[in-house]
Simulated assay, not measured.
Amino acid sequence: MYGWSKDLFFAPENPSINLYKADGSPITGDVSNQIKLWDNGTRINQRPGVNVIHPGTGDQA
């Protein structure tokens, strides 16, 4: 993650995005109906931001 997310992410349902139809022809165009918004379930659902306190210890660079 390169931004505040609170553990929500976009990904296809398992196993992946279909590239071919059942008849073997390639899928073209908009495939956004194969993408879902997932909730990892590890954080409290609240508005993300710099003032949100996160449990655990941050990485030291």
Rank of each mutant, 00 (worst) to 15 (best):
P15T: 06
Q34D: 02
I27G: 05
P26Y: 08
Y2G: 10
I53F: 07
N40E: 13
I35H: 07
S5K: 06
V50W: 11
P15F: 02
P48C: 07
A61Y: 12
T57D: 11
D59R: 14
I17D: 04
P26F: 08
P15I: 05
G56D: 00
Q60N: 10
Q46H: 11
F9L: 03
V52H: 01
N51T: 14
L37R: 09
F10Y: 07
Q46T: 14
L8W: 04
E13P: 06
A22E: 13
D7L: 01
P55E: 06
N51P: 03
D7H: 03
Q60E: 12
A22M: 05
H54T: 14
D59S: 12
K36L: 07
N40Q: 12
A61G: 12
R43F: 07
S16Y: 11
G3M: 05
K21N: 15
K6G: 02
G3R: 02
Q46F: 08
S16N: 14
W4C: 00
F10I: 13
N45M: 08
P12M: 02
V31C: 00
G29L: 00
P26K: 11
R47T: 15
D39I: 12
S16I: 08
Y2I: 05
I17V: 15
N51L: 10
V52P: 02
R47Q: 15
Y20K: 13
A22C: 04
A22Y: 04
R47K: 15
D7F: 01
S32L: 09
I17Y: 09
L8D: 00
T28S: 11
G56F: 06
S16A: 15
G24K: 04
D7T: 05
L37Q: 05
S16H: 13
L8C: 04
P48W: 03
F9Q: 00
T57K: 13
G29C: 01
G3T: 04
D59L: 15
N14F: 14
N18F: 07
T28E: 09
Y20L: 15
G58L: 08
D23L: 09
P48T: 02
D59Q: 13
G3S: 03
D30G: 07
G3D: 04
G58A: 10
D7C: 01
P55M: 06
S5R: 07
V50T: 14
I53T: 13
L19M: 11
F9A: 01
G24V: 05
Q60D: 12
M1W: 05
S25W: 00
Y2Q: 05
S32H: 06
D23M: 03
Y2K: 06
L37F: 04
L8Q: 01
L37M: 12
G29P: 03
F9H: 03
K36I: 03
K36T: 06
R43P: 05
G49T: 05
I35E: 01
I17F: 11
G49R: 06
S25P: 00
K36A: 05
G41S: 10
D7M: 01
D23C: 09
S16T: 14
D7Y: 02
R47A: 15
G29I: 00
L37E: 08
I53L: 09
G58S: 09
I17Q: 07
H54N: 14
P12G: 02
